[in-house]
């Protein structure tokens, strides 16, 4: 089967598709996509960050945090979505659960890894100066773990954007609609529009996350404060790549 580009204006550039009147206007699809992404991310973070902080701070149940990353990475996203849809039924709910489940491992693992990478001398000093446990966690450990935690959130965001695209196959809204519907209708220009927009959205979110990271991470930790001394070694490259994104 060969799919030809539509002869007239490509889908992406057709103003018709950008207006509110269109059944699936592009701005609306982007909005829906972002909404699902944000929703899944917030829920996942609300679960994964406290658990990651607990495990990282106490060192208890470490195997959970370590293995969460591996399990999350090896779980086929389409399989998980299909499983939940058949199990629970149609609608938004099963797809959203899948997004949350897939966003948890990168956040959990990186929060744990971030806390583990904190210089024990700083924690020792914090306790020795009379900080209580929660003060130590939130004013010393978290700020120092923030670069890794942020990269975990970033990976989770990309994972969710990608999975939400796949979830269009089971009826979820968002930009995935263009891909799935385009394929079904043999409209390659619609497919291309969806693919380009999804890619652009992912890249944009990635860049925004990087920007956010610059804002929230102290220059003393990120290494940006270093001008005359040798640059501080970055945390292990593995902890940064360990939470694969694409889905």
């Amino acid at each position: 089967m060969i799919v030809r580009l539509a002869t007239d204006t490509p889908y992406l550039l057709d103003p018709e598709n950008w207006t509110d009147s269109a059944v699936t206007s592009i701005p609306e699809l982007i909005g829906t996509h972002l909404l699902y992404t944000a929703l899944a991310l917030v829920i996942a973070a609300a679960i994964a960050i406290p658990v990651g902080l607990f495990i990282g701070h106490t060192g208890r149940l470490a195997f959970v945090a370590i293995n969460a990353g591996n399990v999350g990475r090896s779980l086929p996203t389409l399989g998980l979505i299909s499983f939940l849809v058949v199990l629970i039924g149609g609608g938004l709910f099963p797809a959203l659960i899948a997004l949350v489940i897939l966003a948890i491992p990168p956040i959990l693992t990186s929060t744990y890894a971030g806390l583990r990478a904190v210089d024990p001398a700083a924690v020792d000093a914090a306790r020795g100066m009379g900080m209580r446990e929660l003060q130590t966690v939130f004013t010393v450990e978290v700020p120092m773990a923030l670069p890794l935690m942020m990269s975990g959130l970033r990976n989770a965001a990309l994972q969710v954007v990608a999975t939400a695209t796949v979830a269009a196959y089971v009826g979820l809204g968002g930009l995935g609609r263009l891909l799935v519907d385009g394929l079904a209708l043999n409209q390659y220009d619609r497919v291309v529009a969806g693919a380009v927009l999804v890619a652009a959205l992912a890249i944009l979110i990635d860049l925004l996350a990087e920007l956010l990271q610059r804002v929230v991470v102290s220059p003393g930790v990120s290494g940006r404060a270093v001008t005359r001394r040798a640059r501080v070694a970055h945390p292990s490259p593995l902890t940064e790549v360990s939470s694969g994104t694409a889905a």
Binding site: G176, L179, A195, V198, A199, A202, I203, T245, A246, A247
Partner: peptide, 8 residues
């Protein structure tokens, strides 16, 4: 790496 697989 950040481009979603289905799009790629």
């Amino acid at each position: 790496y950040s481009i979603p697989s289905l799009a790629l």
